[in-house]
């Protein structure tokens, strides 16, 4: 049990530093930055205390906000995807979720891709609509959210396959 708690704390600090020191300084093609920290929310253990999970997601988002001076944008997006995550777990993994026996490293790639994609897109849409906060610039919001989502998705899948334990 302690092992899991330690792992969560370490990954919390790890993704925060990775996000603010590396990923927010990439500025690919001028303005595209991935928000890799969502991987913490995506890969949080499925069997969990939901209240704690939602609170941790809020804390992570707010930490990122403090570093990036963005008010509460990331906190809002993170807490939302943390709250709706079970819905998407059920949608993407179906029966396996009902038995509460998902291990992310054991699932099909395609199912994992859909799960990642949906939550990342929702997260980024919330982030960019709150950052830009102007309904006359809807196209800009969609465009930026799309570019950033693709970038985040690729990095998340990479990190996931890099750091998942092989069951061989």
């Amino acid at each position: 049990m302690n092992n899991i708690v330690l792992k969560i704390i370490l990954s919390f600090i790890g993704v925060t530093l990775l996000q603010v020191l590396v990923c927010s300084n990439i500025n690919f093609m001028g303005h595209i930055n991935p928000f890799v920290y969502v991987i913490f929310i995506l890969l949080y253990p499925v069997i969990n205390n939901r209240l704690l999970f939602i609170f941790l997601s809020f804390l992570l988002g707010y930490t990122i906000d403090i570093f990036l001076d963005s008010g509460g944008v990331h906190a809002a997006a993170s807490v939302t995807i943390a709250y709706i995550r079970p819905l998407f777990l059920k949608f993407s993994f179906g029966a396996a979720y009902d038995y509460q026996s998902i291990k992310f490293s054991n699932t099909d790639f395609s199912r994992r891709l859909i799960y990642f994609l949906l939550l990342i897109v929702i997260h980024h849409l919330i982030v960019f609509s709150l950052v830009i906060f102007d309904k006359t610039k809807t196209v800009l919001i969609l465009q930026q959210a799309l570019h950033s989502s693709i970038f985040t998705l690729i990095l998340c899948l990479l990190f996931n396959s890099l750091f998942s334990k092989k069951e061989a």
Binding site: I54, F55, F58, G61, Y62, D65, S70, G71, G72, V73, A75, A76, V79, T80, L130, F133
Partner: peptide
């Protein structure tokens, strides 16, 4: 938590 985050954003 969401309303906290939103009020921070608006501020």
């Amino acid at each position: 938590l969401l309303s906290c985050a939103l009020s921070l954003t608006i501020q």
